[in-house]
Every structure is written in C-alpha cells, then in structure tokens.
Amino acid sequence: MSDTSIEADLTRSANGRIAKERLYHGLLFCCAALTVFVTISIVATLAIDALEFFGRVNPYAFFTGTEWVLRSENPILGILPLVTATLIVTIVSALVAIPVGTAAAVYLSEYASDRMRSVLKPALEILAGIPTVVYGFFALVYLTPWLQGLGLDVSLFNLLSASVMVGIMIIPMVSSISEDAMSAVPDSLRQAGYGLGATKFEVSTKIVIPASISGIFSSYILALSRAIGETMIVVVAGGSRARMFDPSEPFANLLNSGQTMTAAMVQAVTTDLSGGTAGYYSMFAIGLTLFAITFSMNLLSNRIAARYREEYQ
C-alpha cells in the first residue's frame, strides 16, 4: 500500500491510518459488546430483586404452589396458576398459528405466483406490525362478544379470545421463518422429485417439508416463545385473576379469565399493594422465570436452526 492511491484519505500517513482503524474497530466492538452488557444487566436486575423475594418466600413453595392470591395481608404466592395460564395461552395460540402459519408458508414457497407473493408477503408482514395492544383491543371489544354471540359462555375477560388473538399475532412469525426454511431447500431436490413423476403436492409434502423440518420447528419454537412472553393481549383481554388449571373441566379454563406470568408482572406495578412486600418483589421472580424459559427456548431454536443451515449451505 503506497501513498500513490487515488483517494485523499489513503494518502494520509500510515500511522494515522492504523490508529484510525483501531479506533473504529474498538468503537464497533463496543457496539457489539453492548448487547452482552444488556443481557448481564437483565439478569442482574432480575436476580437481585428475585433474591430479595426468595429471602421472604420459600423457593420450593413458590415453584410448586398451586395458588396465587396477591394481597397485602398473607399473600399466597405459588407460581403454578400463572404457569398453567401461560401454557394454556401458548398451546391454544399454537393450535391456531402452527397449522395456519405452516400452510401459509407452503403456499407462499411452493404454490404462489410471483404476483400473489408480492401481495401476500407484505400483507402478512403488516399483520406482524400491528401493535399487541391493538390485538388486545380486538380480542376484548370484538372477539369476545362474537364468542358470546356464538353461544359460548365466556366471561368478559377470558383466556380463549386472548389466546386466539395471540395465535393470530404469531402466524406471520411462523409463516415467514418457515417459508425461509422451505425456500432454502435446493431446487435440485424438487426437480429430482418431479423427475420421478411426483406431483406438486407430493413434492411439497414429501420432499420440501421433510427437508426443511428443522427450520420449520425452529420457527415454531420462536413463535411459542413469543406467545409465552406476550404481554398486552393477555393484560387487556385475559383478565387478572390467577386460576390454577382445573383438569376436571379443561374447557372451562378457557372460558374464564386467567392471569399469565407477564400479566402478573404488569399487575404488580399497578396495584394497591404496598411496595417492598413479597407480593411486589414477586414480579422479579416471575420475570426471572420467564426470562429463563424464553432464553432456553430461543437457544433450542437456534440449535435446531443451525442444524438446517449446515444441511444445505
């Protein structure tokens, strides 16, 4: 590298250039390292106050308790009702989002004409951009009355409409990541299938889906972890009464109100409870649990997705 380069910048002294490179390298590294700092602060924030909480409440009782009564005198703090409500929301939303999302992905990746794709993909993306508080509003003000109109005995706040809405919200997530995975399947595989006389249906279901299955699964996990962490829909439409799952009447659980872990956290900052009590600090213990769950699900999804990347790239 000589000083005869064409660019004015390049003609500056080599010394200054190296120093400048180092400076930028350092700055950019700081940007990337900031994300690690964010993770550490999340864990620290949650852990410090969660420790405070576990100083007052026995962790074993917390994680195995089947009753959640948040009140200023003698609160009963067992996380299981919140966990079961979260599970209900996750499962029902998965029942909505997985079939619809996967079918949409297959259609977009295998069947849709370019023109169709250019309309449907942005439309799905716009779906993904609707704020969750708006979805919550849809559930509370329109979906619940519809369900009541259909003859379902749902209460004003209920887990069913909240979960269905969470499901609709995560459809674009399932469809877009699954579609990416399906598009990553090399065309040669499809052509081999056609060469053997397979129909488009057979190619889609017996070649493309199995070949991209790890990507599809990773999209499911990501979407489910989003459903677990979803806050505003369940706060607005799901109610704030924690109820333990009642196995004797599985459907009644859906029709009643229920409180998920995220909703309990929001409630803890907006109640008449006095701060500094176990009830208040419970928010951080729930947050830590939630963080641990979503973190491990995301790790799992990364692992699975990494496998499929290795397969075809």
Binding site: T39, L46, S225, G229, M265, G287, L290, F291, T294, F295
Partner: peptide, 9 residues
C-alpha cells in the same frame, strides 16, 4: 436470544 426476551422484562 435478546430478540426473544419478553418486552415486559
């Protein structure tokens, strides 16, 4: 992973 952390956290 951070992209998947719930917003309330």
């Amino acid at each position: 992973n951070l992209a998947g952390v719930p917003s309330v956290v």
